[in-house]
């Protein structure tokens, strides 16, 4: 029984990572209306940038992370403007856009490999000793991940509900034509979304790297399928759905992982298939992208 409750504790950590990454992916998918297969590599790039600022430039961890967030926001906006936008403007079919993001994924991954090689790196942060927290057994770092994720979700919530840009993002994601008719120009909304996506991808990637205590160039790509499971479970373009989806996938993978530890993340794929077969609109049923 105590193992079971501990697994739920680890599940919350995984959920925190998935929520950060999943909200970033679902917002972009909803607003731009195409899936982004380079998202995993965007996460990885964010991790390596943080690591460069932290371990090589010897900045404090928080400062390094903030710098990386700014860089990744800029890189994502630039990628979207330079590579994706020409295809969107020309009205390329979704098929083509998918291949283009797949190509961007290959390029980003190659850049990471070319600069940093294929080996593993680590942040080597303090706080890896587990604390006994009632039924849970978590390290301070894992608590920090959960705290960061909850805080980030709260900020995203405020952004989407209290700011004009956030409201426009939701409008474009719900129904782009309706948003256009109501006088919302999609271009600035798309730019802002990509910036936010870059920030959340980096946060998710760093949380993943810290939780796993090491990282390599395949970090994000190997995790991408779990993030897609979260996005589809929550319903594409629905950030609150993604948060709920992250919780479900996180806890389910860790609990089932008690029996099949080496395949625990693959459980996310089973979740994805079940959702696609039985509830393609996601957990939260409302008029949206199915």
């Amino acid at each position: 029984m105590s193992f079971f409750i501990q697994a739920i504790g680890f599940g919350l950590v995984t959920a925190a990572v998935l929520a950060l990454a999943g909200v970033g992916l679902t917002l972009q998918f909803g607003v731009t209306n195409y899936a982004n297969f380079a998202y995993g590599d965007m996460m990885t790039l964010g991790v390596y940038l943080t690591w460069v600022f932290f371990a090589i430039a010897h900045l404090t961890f928080v400062l390094a992370l903030l710098l990386a967030l700014v860089c990744m926001a800029a890189i994502c906006v630039a990628t979207a403007e330079v590579i994706m936008r020409p295809f969107v403007l020309r009205g390329s079919p979704p098929l083509i856009l998918l291949i283009v993001t797949f190509g961007v994924s290959l390029i980003l991954n190659s850049i990471i490999l070319a600069i940093w090689g294929a080996g593993s790196e680590a942040f080597q942060l303090p706080g890896t000793q587990p604390l006994d927290l009632g039924p849970f057994l978590l390290t301070p770092l894992q608590l920090l991940i959960i705290g960061t994720s909850v805080a980030a979700m709260f900020v995203v919530h405020l952004l989407l509900t209290r700011t004009s840009m956030g409201k426009r993002m939701r409008a474009v994601s719900d129904n782009r034509e309706l948003a256009r008719v109501s006088g919302i120009s999609p271009t600035p909304v798309i730019r802002a979304t990509w910036a936010l996506t870059g920030v959340l991808a980096t946060l998710g990637g760093v949380a993943l790297a810290v939780d796993a205590s090491q990282f390599s160039p395949g970090l994000g790509e190997g995790f991408l399928f779990a993030i897609f499971a979260v996005v589809i479970l929550g319903g594409v373009g629905k950030p609150y759905g993604a948060m709920l989806g992250a919780l479900v996938v996180g806890v389910v993978t860790e609990v089932i992982g008690l029996w099949i530890p080496q395949y625990k993340l693959d459980v996310a794929f089973v979740v994805l298939i079940v959702v696609l077969l039985f509830r393609p609109e996601g957990l939260i049923r409302s008029a949206g992208k199915a």
Partner: peptide
């Protein structure tokens, strides 16, 4: 399983995820 949904994104996503899982297994 993958062709049960109409959007090509879902198909691409499902195949990509299946590939990662096949590799893991």
């Amino acid at each position: 399983t993958a062709f049960r949904r109409l959007r090509s994104d879902y198909l691409a996503i499902t195949t990509l995820c299946a590939g990662t899982v096949a590799f893991d297994i």
